[in-house]
């Protein structure tokens, strides 16, 4: 008798739990649409200098990496953090640089390294669980920037953490609904409020990047 009661009790409890589970997880909506979920991305990029940065280094940079993490909210918004590494350099043939009453003849090797540290806000034109998710993004914050201009082997260096903004548009493609692993492309305009010697005004650039994106919960 005791065993029967125990069995019934157990059965009723598990059934109740099952019913509760079914109740919560039934319906059309995805988990992505009901909870805060995550997305991380790593992309390789090619960057084109603009404005003052173009005056310093006038060529495409093939060495850029972008890393991004996002908290996806059910209402198609996401809040994220982004960093990465951007490096560009150029050798300038020997020429004479004038500074007031000083002339310097040198072969310059100009380098610029950037590590952004920004917060982002994105709006997606598709649901969090969708296969294709185009978006617009506004990022702002700062960037550690290192300007090192070598005159021959002698370096003229300036670095620091400067303010920066980076609006972007992009597309995440996961192949099918609910899938975690996907691909991403992004076009980002970035402007770092830094100037020094040969880099006038500020340091804007346009970066096109592509890589992998992974969403999870």
């Amino acid at each position: 008798m005791k065993r029967i009661i125990a069995l019934i009790t157990l059965l009723s409890l598990t059934t109740a739990a099952w019913a509760q589970y079914q109740n919560i997880y039934s319906g059309e909506s995805s988990l992505y649409d009901r909870y805060v979920t995550f997305n991380i991305a790593a992309r390789y990029g090619v960057s084109m200098p603009l404005g003052g940065q173009k005056g310093y280094i006038d060529k495409l940079s093939p060495t850029n990496l972008a890393l991004e993490g996002e908290w996806l909210f059910p209402q198609r918004f996401s809040v994220g953090i982004k960093t990465g590494y951007q490096y560009t350099s150029q050798r300038i043939p020997r020429q004479v640089y004038q500074y007031d009453n000083q002339s310097v003849s040198a072969v310059q090797t100009r380098t610029l390294s950037v590590i952004p540290a920004m917060a982002s806000l994105s709006y997606y034109f598709a649901g969090n669980a969708d296969a294709i998710r185009p978006y617009i993004q506004m990022a702002g914050g700062g960037a550690y920037i290192d300007y090192t201009n070598y005159f021959g082997p002698l370096s003229d260096q300036k670095n620091g953490f400067k303010g920066a903004i980076a609006p972007a548009i992009g597309l995440k493609y996961y192949g099918k609904r609910e899938q975690g692993l996907g691909a991403e492309i992004q076009a980002q305009y970035q402007n770092i409020f830094f100037n020094y010697d040969q880099l006038k005004d500020s340091a804007p650039s346009l970066m096109l990047s592509a890589g992998i994106s992974y969403r999870f919960h």
Binding site: Q102, F151, G152, L154
Partner: peptide, 25 residues
């Protein structure tokens, strides 16, 4: 990423190395 920075002037030739600095009043 911060720990890797390449050396930009490793390939600088001897002819490209000298820096001539002149100052005048």
């Amino acid at each position: 990423l911060t720990s890797c920075r390449d050396s930009a002037i490793n390939d600088l030739s001897p002819a490209d190395s000298p820096v001539y600095i002149t100052n005048y009043d």
